[in-house]
Nucleic acid binder design. Structure first.
Length: 499
RNA sequence: GCCGGGCUGGCGUAGUUGGCAACGUUGCGGAUUGUGGCUCCGUAGUGCGGGGUUCGAGUCCCCGGCCCGGCACCA
Protein backbone atom coordinates (compact mmCIF):
# COMPACT_ATOMS: atom_id res chain seq x y z
CA UNK A 1 0.00 0.00 0.00
CA UNK A 2 2.53 2.52 -1.06
CA UNK A 3 0.14 5.00 -2.58
CA UNK A 4 -2.88 6.33 -0.84
CA UNK A 5 -5.98 4.71 -2.17
CA UNK A 6 -8.77 6.51 -0.35
CA UNK A 7 -10.20 4.19 2.26
CA UNK A 8 -13.78 4.89 1.26
CA UNK A 9 -12.99 3.45 -2.15
CA UNK A 10 -12.87 0.07 -0.49
CA UNK A 11 -16.61 0.34 -0.07
CA UNK A 12 -19.30 0.24 -2.72
CA UNK A 13 -20.55 3.65 -3.84
CA UNK A 14 -23.06 5.22 -1.51
CA UNK A 15 -26.39 3.42 -1.63
CA UNK A 16 -24.98 0.39 -3.40
CA UNK A 17 -24.20 -2.93 -1.81
CA UNK A 18 -21.37 -5.40 -1.90
CA UNK A 19 -22.38 -9.01 -1.97
CA UNK A 20 -19.78 -11.22 -0.31
CA UNK A 21 -20.96 -14.85 -0.15
CA UNK A 22 -22.33 -14.57 3.37
CA UNK A 23 -24.70 -11.83 2.24
CA UNK A 24 -25.25 -12.98 -1.31
CA UNK A 25 -26.48 -16.44 -0.44
CA UNK A 26 -29.52 -15.02 1.33
CA UNK A 27 -30.36 -12.75 -1.57
CA UNK A 28 -29.77 -15.59 -3.98
CA UNK A 29 -32.02 -17.80 -1.93
CA UNK A 30 -34.87 -15.31 -2.26
CA UNK A 31 -34.18 -14.78 -5.94
CA UNK A 32 -34.42 -18.49 -6.57
CA UNK A 33 -37.78 -18.63 -4.85
CA UNK A 34 -39.03 -15.64 -6.80
CA UNK A 35 -37.90 -17.18 -10.04
CA UNK A 36 -39.16 -20.69 -9.36
CA UNK A 37 -42.67 -20.12 -8.03
CA UNK A 38 -44.07 -18.22 -11.04
CA UNK A 39 -42.82 -21.00 -13.31
CA UNK A 40 -44.79 -23.49 -11.23
CA UNK A 41 -47.86 -21.49 -12.22
CA UNK A 42 -47.01 -21.62 -15.88
CA UNK A 43 -45.28 -18.29 -16.31
CA UNK A 44 -42.54 -17.91 -18.90
CA UNK A 45 -39.36 -16.06 -18.05
CA UNK A 46 -38.24 -13.09 -20.12
CA UNK A 47 -36.04 -10.04 -19.78
CA UNK A 48 -35.19 -6.79 -21.50
CA UNK A 49 -32.18 -4.50 -21.60
CA UNK A 50 -30.85 -2.94 -18.40
CA UNK A 51 -30.60 0.33 -20.32
CA UNK A 52 -33.72 1.91 -21.74
CA UNK A 53 -34.65 5.15 -23.45
CA UNK A 54 -35.48 7.84 -21.03
CA UNK A 55 -38.54 8.67 -23.08
CA UNK A 56 -40.12 5.32 -22.25
CA UNK A 57 -40.67 6.49 -18.67
CA UNK A 58 -41.94 9.88 -19.68
CA UNK A 59 -44.78 8.44 -21.76
CA UNK A 60 -46.61 6.68 -19.05
CA UNK A 61 -46.91 9.24 -16.29
CA UNK A 62 -45.94 12.64 -17.52
CA UNK A 63 -42.24 12.60 -16.82
CA UNK A 64 -42.40 13.23 -13.09
CA UNK A 65 -40.52 10.21 -11.97
CA UNK A 66 -37.53 10.60 -14.17
CA UNK A 67 -35.76 12.58 -11.47
CA UNK A 68 -34.72 9.45 -9.65
CA UNK A 69 -33.28 7.68 -12.58
CA UNK A 70 -29.61 7.10 -13.41
CA UNK A 71 -28.60 8.66 -16.68
CA UNK A 72 -26.34 6.70 -18.98
CA UNK A 73 -23.91 8.40 -21.30
CA UNK A 74 -23.36 6.67 -24.59
CA UNK A 75 -21.93 7.76 -27.90
CA UNK A 76 -25.31 8.45 -29.40
CA UNK A 77 -27.44 11.50 -28.80
CA UNK A 78 -30.23 9.39 -27.40
CA UNK A 79 -31.02 9.91 -23.74
CA UNK A 80 -30.59 6.61 -21.98
CA UNK A 81 -31.21 5.54 -18.39
CA UNK A 82 -30.64 2.51 -16.21
CA UNK A 83 -34.06 0.97 -15.93
CA UNK A 84 -35.85 1.78 -12.68
CA UNK A 85 -38.64 -0.76 -13.16
CA UNK A 86 -39.90 -3.34 -15.61
CA UNK A 87 -43.48 -2.49 -16.46
CA UNK A 88 -42.77 0.03 -19.26
CA UNK A 89 -40.35 -2.41 -20.87
CA UNK A 90 -43.00 -5.07 -20.64
CA UNK A 91 -45.57 -2.75 -22.16
CA UNK A 92 -43.16 -2.02 -24.99
CA UNK A 93 -42.57 -5.71 -25.66
CA UNK A 94 -46.26 -6.52 -25.65
CA UNK A 95 -47.10 -3.59 -27.90
CA UNK A 96 -44.52 -4.86 -30.39
CA UNK A 97 -45.12 -8.62 -30.19
CA UNK A 98 -48.84 -8.52 -29.51
CA UNK A 99 -49.96 -10.24 -32.72
CA UNK A 100 -47.74 -13.27 -32.38
CA UNK A 101 -48.34 -13.99 -28.69
CA UNK A 102 -50.93 -16.45 -27.45
CA UNK A 103 -53.27 -14.85 -24.96
CA UNK A 104 -53.44 -14.68 -22.11
CA UNK A 105 -49.76 -14.05 -21.76
CA UNK A 106 -48.19 -15.14 -18.49
CA UNK A 107 -44.75 -13.68 -18.12
CA UNK A 108 -42.35 -13.27 -15.21
CA UNK A 109 -38.93 -11.72 -14.90
CA UNK A 110 -36.37 -11.12 -12.21
CA UNK A 111 -33.42 -8.88 -12.73
CA UNK A 112 -31.58 -5.88 -11.35
CA UNK A 113 -32.96 -2.34 -11.33
CA UNK A 114 -31.58 1.05 -10.39
CA UNK A 115 -33.03 4.12 -8.71
CA UNK A 116 -31.04 7.10 -7.60
CA UNK A 117 -32.78 7.54 -4.28
CA UNK A 118 -31.64 8.33 -0.77
CA UNK A 119 -30.90 4.97 0.75
CA UNK A 120 -32.75 3.81 3.82
CA UNK A 121 -33.45 0.54 5.47
CA UNK A 122 -35.10 -1.64 2.87
CA UNK A 123 -34.25 0.78 0.11
CA UNK A 124 -31.06 0.86 -1.91
CA UNK A 125 -30.01 2.15 -5.28
CA UNK A 126 -29.60 -1.23 -6.92
CA UNK A 127 -31.91 -4.14 -6.25
CA UNK A 128 -33.46 -7.23 -7.72
CA UNK A 129 -37.10 -7.17 -8.57
CA UNK A 130 -39.57 -9.79 -9.66
CA UNK A 131 -42.40 -8.87 -12.00
CA UNK A 132 -45.29 -11.22 -12.61
CA UNK A 133 -47.94 -10.27 -15.14
CA UNK A 134 -50.94 -11.62 -16.98
CA UNK A 135 -51.74 -9.79 -20.18
CA UNK A 136 -54.83 -10.26 -22.26
CA UNK A 137 -57.25 -11.51 -19.62
CA UNK A 138 -59.87 -9.10 -18.48
CA UNK A 139 -61.45 -11.38 -15.89
CA UNK A 140 -60.68 -10.64 -12.24
CA UNK A 141 -59.41 -14.20 -12.22
CA UNK A 142 -56.17 -12.74 -13.56
CA UNK A 143 -55.80 -10.37 -10.63
CA UNK A 144 -56.56 -13.22 -8.26
CA UNK A 145 -53.99 -15.49 -9.85
CA UNK A 146 -51.09 -13.07 -9.67
CA UNK A 147 -51.98 -12.37 -6.04
CA UNK A 148 -51.93 -16.09 -5.42
CA UNK A 149 -48.42 -16.25 -6.89
CA UNK A 150 -47.36 -13.41 -4.62
CA UNK A 151 -48.87 -15.21 -1.66
CA UNK A 152 -47.00 -18.38 -2.43
CA UNK A 153 -43.69 -16.58 -2.74
CA UNK A 154 -44.12 -14.96 0.65
CA UNK A 155 -44.98 -18.32 2.15
CA UNK A 156 -42.08 -20.04 0.52
CA UNK A 157 -39.74 -17.30 1.70
CA UNK A 158 -40.67 -18.14 5.27
CA UNK A 159 -43.59 -15.92 6.25
CA UNK A 160 -46.70 -17.50 7.72
CA UNK A 161 -50.34 -16.52 7.35
CA UNK A 162 -50.94 -13.77 9.85
CA UNK A 163 -47.42 -12.45 9.52
CA UNK A 164 -48.31 -10.58 6.40
CA UNK A 165 -51.32 -8.97 4.83
CA UNK A 166 -52.32 -8.28 1.30
CA UNK A 167 -54.19 -5.01 1.12
CA UNK A 168 -56.55 -4.76 -1.80
CA UNK A 169 -58.81 -2.16 -3.33
CA UNK A 170 -60.24 -1.17 -6.68
CA UNK A 171 -59.82 2.28 -8.15
CA UNK A 172 -63.05 1.91 -10.08
CA UNK A 173 -65.02 1.78 -6.83
CA UNK A 174 -63.44 4.95 -5.50
CA UNK A 175 -63.98 6.61 -8.85
CA UNK A 176 -67.66 5.64 -8.82
CA UNK A 177 -68.05 7.23 -5.39
CA UNK A 178 -66.33 10.40 -6.51
CA UNK A 179 -68.53 10.61 -9.57
CA UNK A 180 -71.63 10.01 -7.46
CA UNK A 181 -70.53 12.89 -5.25
CA UNK A 182 -70.16 15.04 -8.31
CA UNK A 183 -66.44 15.54 -7.78
CA UNK A 184 -64.88 16.14 -11.15
CA UNK A 185 -61.24 16.32 -10.24
CA UNK A 186 -60.65 12.63 -9.57
CA UNK A 187 -56.92 12.90 -10.09
CA UNK A 188 -56.78 15.36 -7.22
CA UNK A 189 -58.36 13.06 -4.68
CA UNK A 190 -56.36 9.87 -5.25
CA UNK A 191 -53.08 11.26 -3.95
CA UNK A 192 -54.87 12.72 -0.95
CA UNK A 193 -56.28 9.32 -0.03
CA UNK A 194 -52.79 7.98 -0.34
CA UNK A 195 -51.48 10.59 2.08
CA UNK A 196 -54.11 10.22 4.73
CA UNK A 197 -51.74 9.14 7.47
CA UNK A 198 -49.37 11.90 6.62
CA UNK A 199 -52.14 14.47 6.89
CA UNK A 200 -52.82 13.25 10.41
CA UNK A 201 -49.15 13.55 11.26
CA UNK A 202 -49.04 17.13 10.05
CA UNK A 203 -52.25 18.04 11.77
CA UNK A 204 -50.99 16.76 15.10
CA UNK A 205 -47.76 18.58 14.63
CA UNK A 206 -49.70 21.82 14.32
CA UNK A 207 -51.71 21.05 17.44
CA UNK A 208 -48.53 20.47 19.40
CA UNK A 209 -46.81 23.61 18.26
CA UNK A 210 -48.69 25.59 20.90
CA UNK A 211 -47.27 23.40 23.66
CA UNK A 212 -43.86 23.81 25.25
CA UNK A 213 -42.54 20.61 23.71
CA UNK A 214 -39.32 20.78 21.74
CA UNK A 215 -39.55 20.73 17.97
CA UNK A 216 -37.75 17.41 17.79
CA UNK A 217 -40.18 15.93 20.30
CA UNK A 218 -43.15 17.23 18.37
CA UNK A 219 -41.78 15.62 15.26
CA UNK A 220 -41.43 12.31 17.05
CA UNK A 221 -44.83 12.41 18.70
CA UNK A 222 -46.58 13.28 15.47
CA UNK A 223 -44.92 10.32 13.83
CA UNK A 224 -46.05 8.08 16.67
CA UNK A 225 -49.63 9.11 16.18
CA UNK A 226 -49.32 8.31 12.52
CA UNK A 227 -48.45 4.77 13.51
CA UNK A 228 -50.58 4.80 16.62
CA UNK A 229 -51.22 1.09 17.02
CA UNK A 230 -47.55 0.45 17.13
CA UNK A 231 -46.43 3.31 19.36
CA UNK A 232 -49.44 3.61 21.66
CA UNK A 233 -47.65 2.28 24.71
CA UNK A 234 -44.40 4.07 24.11
CA UNK A 235 -46.28 7.30 23.66
CA UNK A 236 -48.05 6.95 26.97
CA UNK A 237 -44.88 6.01 28.77
CA UNK A 238 -42.77 8.81 27.38
CA UNK A 239 -45.13 11.73 27.09
CA UNK A 240 -48.15 10.65 29.11
CA UNK A 241 -47.57 13.42 31.64
CA UNK A 242 -48.35 16.14 29.13
CA UNK A 243 -51.95 17.24 29.22
CA UNK A 244 -52.16 17.83 25.52
CA UNK A 245 -51.08 14.28 24.78
CA UNK A 246 -53.94 13.00 26.87
CA UNK A 247 -56.38 15.24 25.05
CA UNK A 248 -55.24 14.13 21.65
CA UNK A 249 -55.32 10.52 22.72
CA UNK A 250 -58.93 10.66 23.82
CA UNK A 251 -60.03 12.59 20.73
CA UNK A 252 -57.94 10.78 18.18
CA UNK A 253 -60.90 9.60 16.16
CA UNK A 254 -62.29 13.04 15.56
CA UNK A 255 -58.81 14.44 15.02
CA UNK A 256 -58.19 11.93 12.27
CA UNK A 257 -61.39 12.99 10.60
CA UNK A 258 -60.64 16.66 11.04
CA UNK A 259 -57.16 16.35 9.59
CA UNK A 260 -58.48 14.68 6.48
CA UNK A 261 -61.64 16.69 5.99
CA UNK A 262 -60.07 20.07 6.55
CA UNK A 263 -57.42 19.37 3.96
CA UNK A 264 -60.00 18.23 1.38
CA UNK A 265 -62.05 21.32 2.08
CA UNK A 266 -58.98 23.46 1.52
CA UNK A 267 -58.73 21.80 -1.87
CA UNK A 268 -62.24 22.88 -2.79
CA UNK A 269 -64.24 19.78 -1.80
CA UNK A 270 -67.53 20.37 0.03
CA UNK A 271 -67.35 19.48 3.71
CA UNK A 272 -70.22 17.02 3.48
CA UNK A 273 -68.52 15.19 0.64
CA UNK A 274 -65.22 15.26 2.43
CA UNK A 275 -66.81 13.55 5.42
CA UNK A 276 -68.19 10.82 3.22
CA UNK A 277 -64.78 10.35 1.67
CA UNK A 278 -63.29 10.04 5.12
CA UNK A 279 -65.78 7.32 5.98
CA UNK A 280 -64.82 5.55 2.78
CA UNK A 281 -61.11 5.84 3.50
CA UNK A 282 -61.60 4.36 6.96
CA UNK A 283 -63.02 1.16 5.55
CA UNK A 284 -60.48 -1.43 6.42
CA UNK A 285 -61.16 -5.07 7.03
CA UNK A 286 -61.78 -8.42 5.49
CA UNK A 287 -63.49 -7.98 2.11
CA UNK A 288 -66.49 -9.97 3.31
CA UNK A 289 -67.27 -7.17 5.74
CA UNK A 290 -65.76 -4.22 3.95
CA UNK A 291 -67.26 -4.70 0.50
CA UNK A 292 -70.89 -4.47 1.70
CA UNK A 293 -69.98 -1.15 3.33
CA UNK A 294 -68.82 0.22 0.00
CA UNK A 295 -71.94 -1.09 -1.68
CA UNK A 296 -74.07 0.62 0.96
CA UNK A 297 -72.29 3.95 0.46
CA UNK A 298 -72.83 3.78 -3.27
CA UNK A 299 -76.49 2.92 -2.87
CA UNK A 300 -77.02 5.72 -0.40
CA UNK A 301 -75.65 8.08 -2.99
CA UNK A 302 -78.13 6.68 -5.46
CA UNK A 303 -75.39 5.19 -7.63
CA UNK A 304 -75.00 1.72 -9.07
CA UNK A 305 -72.84 -0.69 -7.11
CA UNK A 306 -71.62 -2.43 -10.24
CA UNK A 307 -68.14 -1.04 -9.75
CA UNK A 308 -67.72 -3.38 -6.78
CA UNK A 309 -68.36 -6.50 -8.84
CA UNK A 310 -64.85 -7.12 -10.22
CA UNK A 311 -63.28 -6.90 -6.76
CA UNK A 312 -66.04 -9.09 -5.42
CA UNK A 313 -65.26 -11.69 -8.06
CA UNK A 314 -61.51 -11.52 -7.49
CA UNK A 315 -62.04 -12.02 -3.77
CA UNK A 316 -64.17 -15.08 -4.44
CA UNK A 317 -61.43 -16.57 -6.60
CA UNK A 318 -58.85 -15.75 -3.97
CA UNK A 319 -60.85 -17.52 -1.32
CA UNK A 320 -61.06 -20.55 -3.58
CA UNK A 321 -57.31 -20.36 -3.95
CA UNK A 322 -56.74 -20.34 -0.19
CA UNK A 323 -55.65 -16.74 0.02
CA UNK A 324 -58.82 -15.46 1.69
CA UNK A 325 -57.45 -15.11 5.18
CA UNK A 326 -54.63 -12.71 4.40
CA UNK A 327 -56.79 -10.25 2.47
CA UNK A 328 -57.63 -6.85 3.82
CA UNK A 329 -59.75 -4.43 1.87
CA UNK A 330 -58.32 -1.00 2.55
CA UNK A 331 -60.24 1.67 0.67
CA UNK A 332 -57.48 4.22 1.17
CA UNK A 333 -55.03 2.23 -0.94
CA UNK A 334 -54.83 3.74 -4.40
CA UNK A 335 -51.11 3.42 -5.26
CA UNK A 336 -49.22 6.37 -6.57
CA UNK A 337 -49.32 5.50 -10.20
CA UNK A 338 -51.31 7.03 -12.92
CA UNK A 339 -51.37 3.90 -15.02
CA UNK A 340 -53.39 1.73 -12.66
CA UNK A 341 -56.97 1.34 -13.77
CA UNK A 342 -58.70 -1.19 -11.54
CA UNK A 343 -57.86 -3.60 -8.77
CA UNK A 344 -54.71 -2.64 -6.90
CA UNK A 345 -52.92 -4.39 -4.06
CA UNK A 346 -49.93 -4.19 -1.74
CA UNK A 347 -48.34 -6.73 0.56
CA UNK A 348 -47.11 -5.69 3.99
CA UNK A 349 -45.51 -7.30 6.95
CA UNK A 350 -48.30 -7.47 9.55
CA UNK A 351 -46.13 -6.10 12.33
CA UNK A 352 -44.87 -3.23 10.16
CA UNK A 353 -41.33 -4.01 11.19
CA UNK A 354 -40.38 -2.36 7.96
CA UNK A 355 -42.87 0.32 7.00
CA UNK A 356 -42.61 -0.36 3.31
CA UNK A 357 -44.59 -2.51 0.94
CA UNK A 358 -43.03 -5.89 0.21
CA UNK A 359 -44.76 -5.95 -3.13
CA UNK A 360 -47.35 -3.98 -5.01
CA UNK A 361 -49.30 -4.13 -8.18
CA UNK A 362 -52.58 -3.87 -9.94
CA UNK A 363 -54.45 -3.67 -13.16
CA UNK A 364 -53.16 -1.43 -15.92
CA UNK A 365 -55.48 -1.92 -18.86
CA UNK A 366 -54.34 1.13 -20.81
CA UNK A 367 -50.57 0.96 -20.67
CA UNK A 368 -49.99 -1.08 -23.79
CA UNK A 369 -52.22 1.14 -25.89
CA UNK A 370 -50.52 4.25 -24.53
CA UNK A 371 -47.28 2.82 -25.88
CA UNK A 372 -48.83 2.41 -29.29
CA UNK A 373 -50.11 -1.13 -29.03
CA UNK A 374 -53.68 -2.30 -29.16
CA UNK A 375 -55.94 -1.97 -26.18
CA UNK A 376 -55.21 -5.02 -24.12
CA UNK A 377 -56.00 -5.66 -20.48
CA UNK A 378 -53.15 -6.40 -18.09
CA UNK A 379 -52.46 -6.96 -14.43
CA UNK A 380 -49.45 -7.88 -12.36
CA UNK A 381 -47.15 -6.96 -9.54
CA UNK A 382 -43.60 -6.04 -8.77
CA UNK A 383 -41.63 -7.25 -5.80
CA UNK A 384 -38.16 -6.21 -4.73
CA UNK A 385 -35.90 -8.39 -2.70
CA UNK A 386 -34.81 -5.72 -0.23
CA UNK A 387 -37.84 -5.27 1.99
CA UNK A 388 -38.53 -8.98 2.24
CA UNK A 389 -34.91 -9.55 3.12
CA UNK A 390 -35.07 -6.99 5.94
CA UNK A 391 -38.26 -8.51 7.31
CA UNK A 392 -36.84 -12.02 7.31
CA UNK A 393 -33.68 -10.71 8.92
CA UNK A 394 -35.69 -8.94 11.59
CA UNK A 395 -37.64 -12.10 12.31
CA UNK A 396 -34.49 -14.18 12.34
CA UNK A 397 -36.19 -16.32 9.75
CA UNK A 398 -33.25 -17.45 7.73
CA UNK A 399 -32.82 -21.15 8.05
CA UNK A 400 -29.79 -22.91 6.76
CA UNK A 401 -29.27 -21.49 3.37
CA UNK A 402 -26.69 -23.67 1.74
CA UNK A 403 -25.58 -22.02 -1.42
CA UNK A 404 -22.04 -22.55 -2.60
CA UNK A 405 -21.30 -25.21 -0.02
CA UNK A 406 -19.48 -28.17 -1.60
CA UNK A 407 -20.99 -31.59 -1.02
CA UNK A 408 -17.66 -33.23 -0.62
CA UNK A 409 -13.92 -32.53 -0.62
CA UNK A 410 -11.11 -34.65 -2.03
CA UNK A 411 -7.40 -34.53 -1.37
CA UNK A 412 -4.62 -36.61 -2.94
CA UNK A 413 -1.69 -37.31 -0.69
CA UNK A 414 1.13 -36.56 -3.05
CA UNK A 415 1.60 -34.89 -6.40
CA UNK A 416 1.74 -38.24 -8.22
CA UNK A 417 -1.87 -38.88 -7.18
CA UNK A 418 -3.31 -35.65 -8.53
CA UNK A 419 -4.43 -37.06 -11.85
CA UNK A 420 -6.21 -40.00 -10.23
CA UNK A 421 -7.87 -37.74 -7.67
CA UNK A 422 -8.94 -35.37 -10.38
CA UNK A 423 -10.44 -38.22 -12.34
CA UNK A 424 -12.46 -39.25 -9.30
CA UNK A 425 -13.56 -35.66 -8.68
CA UNK A 426 -14.71 -35.38 -12.27
CA UNK A 427 -16.85 -38.50 -11.96
CA UNK A 428 -18.47 -37.12 -8.83
CA UNK A 429 -19.09 -33.78 -10.50
CA UNK A 430 -20.68 -35.49 -13.47
CA UNK A 431 -22.98 -37.20 -11.01
CA UNK A 432 -24.15 -33.73 -10.00
CA UNK A 433 -22.08 -33.13 -6.89
CA UNK A 434 -20.13 -30.03 -5.94
CA UNK A 435 -16.61 -31.21 -5.26
CA UNK A 436 -13.89 -29.21 -3.56
CA UNK A 437 -10.42 -30.23 -4.69
CA UNK A 438 -7.69 -29.75 -2.14
CA UNK A 439 -4.16 -29.77 -3.56
CA UNK A 440 -1.66 -32.24 -2.12
CA UNK A 441 0.56 -29.87 -0.18
CA UNK A 442 0.12 -29.05 3.49
CA UNK A 443 -0.96 -31.13 6.41
CA UNK A 444 -4.03 -33.28 6.25
CA UNK A 445 -5.30 -31.86 9.52
CA UNK A 446 -5.27 -28.38 8.09
CA UNK A 447 -7.24 -29.61 5.11
CA UNK A 448 -9.90 -31.06 7.38
CA UNK A 449 -10.06 -27.77 9.14
CA UNK A 450 -10.45 -25.85 5.93
CA UNK A 451 -13.12 -28.18 4.59
CA UNK A 452 -14.93 -28.03 7.88
CA UNK A 453 -14.97 -24.24 7.86
CA UNK A 454 -16.34 -24.27 4.35
CA UNK A 455 -19.25 -26.31 5.65
CA UNK A 456 -18.20 -29.55 4.01
CA UNK A 457 -19.11 -32.73 5.85
CA UNK A 458 -17.50 -35.44 3.75
CA UNK A 459 -13.85 -35.75 2.85
CA UNK A 460 -12.16 -38.19 0.51
CA UNK A 461 -8.53 -39.02 1.16
CA UNK A 462 -6.69 -40.59 -1.73
CA UNK A 463 -3.43 -42.17 -0.54
CA UNK A 464 -1.02 -44.71 -1.96
CA UNK A 465 -1.94 -47.50 0.43
CA UNK A 466 -5.62 -47.33 -0.47
CA UNK A 467 -4.99 -46.92 -4.14
CA UNK A 468 -2.91 -50.09 -4.28
CA UNK A 469 -6.14 -51.92 -3.40
CA UNK A 470 -8.26 -49.75 -5.69
CA UNK A 471 -9.81 -48.10 -2.66
CA UNK A 472 -10.25 -44.66 -1.14
CA UNK A 473 -10.92 -43.39 2.39
CA UNK A 474 -14.08 -41.45 3.15
CA UNK A 475 -14.10 -39.44 6.33
CA UNK A 476 -17.09 -37.78 7.97
CA UNK A 477 -15.57 -34.57 9.23
CA UNK A 478 -18.36 -33.92 11.69
CA UNK A 479 -18.42 -37.28 13.44
CA UNK A 480 -14.86 -38.40 12.75
CA UNK A 481 -16.05 -41.74 11.37
CA UNK A 482 -14.24 -43.02 8.36
CA UNK A 483 -14.32 -46.01 6.12
CA UNK A 484 -12.61 -47.39 3.07
CA UNK A 485 -14.62 -47.68 -0.15
CA UNK A 486 -13.84 -49.52 -3.38
CA UNK A 487 -13.23 -47.01 -6.15
CA UNK A 488 -15.61 -48.66 -8.58
CA UNK A 489 -18.50 -48.29 -6.15
CA UNK A 490 -17.55 -44.81 -5.01
CA UNK A 491 -20.05 -42.61 -6.87
CA UNK A 492 -22.89 -44.90 -5.98
CA UNK A 493 -21.90 -44.99 -2.30
CA UNK A 494 -21.44 -41.25 -2.01
CA UNK A 495 -24.79 -40.53 -3.58
CA UNK A 496 -26.42 -42.92 -1.16
CA UNK A 497 -24.83 -41.17 1.82
CA UNK A 498 -25.69 -37.69 0.64
CA UNK A 499 -29.31 -38.41 -0.10
C1' G B 1 -32.34 17.85 1.15
C1' C B 2 -33.39 17.73 6.78
C1' C B 3 -32.84 15.50 11.95
C1' G B 4 -30.38 12.06 15.27
C1' G B 5 -26.54 8.35 16.60
C1' G B 6 -21.83 6.46 15.56
C1' C B 7 -16.54 6.08 13.72
C1' U B 8 -10.55 2.44 18.54
C1' G B 9 -6.32 -4.10 15.42
C1' G B 10 -10.00 -7.95 9.65
C1' C B 11 -14.72 -8.13 12.75
C1' G B 12 -17.28 -6.98 17.64
C1' U B 13 -16.32 -4.17 21.88
C1' A B 14 -13.69 -1.72 26.79
C1' G B 15 -11.39 2.40 27.95
C1' U B 16 -13.08 5.80 34.85
C1' U B 17 -12.12 13.06 36.48
C1' G B 18 -7.36 14.11 29.54
C1' G B 19 -1.28 10.54 31.39
C1' C B 20 2.27 3.94 29.27
C1' A B 21 -4.44 1.52 24.15
C1' A B 22 -7.25 -3.59 26.96
C1' C B 23 -10.59 -7.86 25.86
C1' G B 24 -13.17 -11.27 22.79
C1' U B 25 -13.28 -13.27 17.99
C1' U B 26 -11.56 -14.30 13.07
C1' G B 27 -7.64 -14.64 9.45
C1' C B 28 -2.59 -15.86 8.52
C1' G B 29 2.11 -18.29 10.27
C1' G B 30 4.51 -21.94 13.66
C1' A B 31 4.87 -27.36 16.87
C1' U B 32 8.58 -30.80 9.10
C1' U B 33 5.32 -33.88 4.30
C1' G B 34 -1.81 -40.13 5.99
C1' U B 35 -5.58 -37.40 9.97
C1' G B 36 -7.94 -31.60 12.19
C1' G B 37 -11.40 -28.91 15.13
C1' C B 38 -8.29 -28.59 22.55
C1' U B 39 -3.85 -25.90 24.22
C1' C B 40 0.41 -22.69 23.52
C1' C B 41 3.31 -18.98 20.82
C1' G B 42 3.83 -15.36 17.01
C1' U B 43 1.37 -11.71 13.62
C1' A B 44 -2.19 -7.05 13.73
C1' G B 45 -4.10 -0.17 15.24
C1' U B 46 -0.09 6.77 11.91
C1' G B 47 -7.08 5.65 17.51
C1' C B 48 -11.90 8.39 10.17
C1' G B 49 -9.07 13.04 8.20
C1' G B 50 -7.52 18.09 9.34
C1' G B 51 -6.92 22.09 12.84
C1' G B 52 -7.05 23.86 18.01
C1' U B 53 -6.63 23.81 23.73
C1' U B 54 -2.66 21.33 26.85
C1' C B 55 3.59 19.61 29.54
C1' G B 56 0.48 15.67 27.58
C1' A B 57 -5.87 13.89 23.81
C1' G B 58 -8.88 7.95 21.72
C1' U B 59 -10.77 10.91 25.70
C1' C B 60 -12.21 18.37 25.45
C1' C B 61 -13.43 22.29 21.19
C1' C B 62 -14.01 23.51 15.73
C1' C B 63 -14.22 22.02 10.41
C1' G B 64 -14.69 18.06 7.00
C1' G B 65 -15.48 12.75 5.55
C1' C B 66 -17.85 8.19 5.90
C1' C B 67 -21.39 4.65 8.05
C1' C B 68 -26.09 3.56 10.42
C1' G B 69 -31.09 4.94 11.79
C1' G B 70 -35.36 8.16 10.85
C1' C B 71 -38.05 12.19 7.97
C1' A B 72 -39.18 14.20 3.22
C1' C B 73 -39.64 11.47 -1.36
C1' C B 74 -40.66 6.75 -3.36
C1' A B 75 -42.36 3.27 -9.85
Amino acid sequence: MANKFPEEFLYAPHGFRDYPPLVYRYIKHLIEIMETIPQRYGYELYDGPIVERRALYEVKSGGEIVGEVFEVKGKSEEKLVLRPEMTPTLGRLIARLDQELTKPIRWATISRYFRDETPQRGRVKEFWQLNVDIIGLESPYADAEVIRVLYEILREAGLKDGEFQILINDRRIIEAILIALGIKNIELVFPILDKKDKLLQEHIRKLLEKSDLLDSEIEQIALMYRKYDRYKDLLKEKYGSYQIIGEIGSNLKSIRREAFVSFLVSQGIAEEDANILFDVSEINGHPDEALPKLVAILEELGASADSTLPLQEAVEYLKDMGVGNVLVLDASIVRGFAYYTGIIFEAFDAESLIPRAVAGGGRYDDLVSVLGGSKIPATGFGMGETVLLEILKEKGRFGEVKIGVPDIAIKPLGKDLVSKAHEIATNLRRAGLNVLFIPPMGKLGKSFEHASKRGVQYFLILGKKDLENEQITLRDIVTGDQKVIALEKLVEEILKILR
